[in-house]
Design a protein around this nucleic acid. Structure first.
Lengths: 234, 234
DNA sequence: ACCTGAACACCGTTCAAGT
DNA sequence: ACCTGAACACCGTTCAAGT
């Protein structure tokens, strides 16, 4: 009769808070936020959902935790730009740091939505914004102006913006596209005018034509330039 | 034996899509997004949850619908500023319109979170952004620059920004506040420095001291000024 | 100390059935 | 045409119980 020869891998790899959070990040990366359920997360770890509660208080704690992991990655990424950009002016440094943070967030597309729902700020997030404030201060900002500056940047300071028009490619009724265009031109003359011009300049891209990265940098540079002006005059 | 004398009010007030959506908006206004469930919504209307599905496809359709109601309110509100602000420059007009939109959103605090999750844009939203584009065009913006401008404004064009630090007033361990402050000063020197200065200037408000409306207008004016500069030069 | 089974109170939704 | 009851496949979570 064969007895247990090997302990199951699980036995040598007990659950920890860190393993739970790491698995949660990977699960969200792979399947998005809606597949990140306690039951799925447990299955991922070869355990039962209820076992998770020994290591995390509840699902809110999981969400706090995965965000902390991401913010840790961001802090690590931005720390690497601090050295090379040491002698630079505040604007160049801030820009490089924010784009580095954005790079990390692009690897965790679900993270902004978690940020939005957080009710408290983790130490890692505090550290990030403390450093943002530090960069502003080193550029000569008063606390008061720096405070407004951080609000003005908002989520852009972390490398993301609220996208209002996610393409998601509907294309429901491709056939009556001419009629739809005509009706659209009636109701939304400016938007159609813009799209016509875009289609004319670059016939390949009628929709899904927005370059997110370009637009992010455009808006970021606009705000940074504006803040730099206020710094000098006020 | 008493027979039915009066028809129940429900009989004279059958469900319609409009009634469902109106009730959904009121429910969310009262209890927030998490109480807006199909079952609660049905109870609100004196019906069963399953009855709703005769009038709306599913919950996504309800969310699309409530946002459409809000966007309708916004379009109505901004249309009232168009008249008085007729002769104004684009920046003044845009500012007034956006602040009017914000006013509406402040009455539906849950709306931004619904906006973020929408996958398609309703006609009412299209109309709003068509008019935003119209204002930019009337100010002399090229389609190209106007397009970047709309991205730069982002959700600010609708009157809201992603708040990163909702106060929510934790105040967990009020007793050891001095020790906590000291430790915080170690880890987050700039943030504590800022808070100390704020507390010094205005001793009443240690936390919850951010004036959302002021910060919104500050950021908005910064962007509008920046865009106006680009409009003139390029 | 660490994990689990059964159970509870919710979700959104389908489908056949009522009037 | 309009509404509903019963049922399904999910949630997060508690609690007593296992090792």
């Amino acid at each position: 009769m064969a007895t247990q020869v090997e302990p199951r891998p699980r036995d040598r790899n007990p659950l920890t808070k860190e393993r739970v959070l790491q698995a949660a990040v990977e699960l969200a990366d792979r399947g998005g936020l809606e597949v990140l359920t306690m039951r799925n997360l447990a299955r991922e770890l070869g355990a039962e959902a209820m076992s998770l509660y020994y290591h995390v208080a509840n699902k809110e704690a999981v969400l706090d935790g995965v965000l902390d992991v991401v913010m840790g990655e961001i802090n690590e990424a931005v720390s690497k730009v601090d050295g090379p950009a040491a002698g630079e002016d505040w604007k160049t440094l801030m820009r490089a740091r924010i784009l580095a943070a954005r790079e990390v967030l692009l690897g965790h597309r679900w993270a902004p939505r978690v940020i939005e729902t957080r009710t408290s700020i983790s130490p890692a997030t505090m550290r990030y914004f403390d450093e943002v404030l530090g960069v502003l201060r080193s550029g000569g900002f008063s606390y008061d102006l720096a405070h407004h500056a951080m609000h003005a940047l908002g989520s852009r300071a972390l490398g993301f913006t609220q996208e209002l028009f996610e393409p998601e490619n509907s294309h429901e009724g491709d056939e009556d596209i001419a009629g739809a265009m005509a009706e659209m031109a009636d109701h939304f003359p400016h938007l159609t005018g813009m799209m016509i011009e875009v289609a004319h300049d670059d016939p390949d891209s009628t929709l899904g034509w927005c370059d997110d990265q370009f637009e992010f940098e455009f808006g970021l540079d606009l705000i940074l330039a504006g803040l730099d002006g206020l710094r000098k005059t006020g």
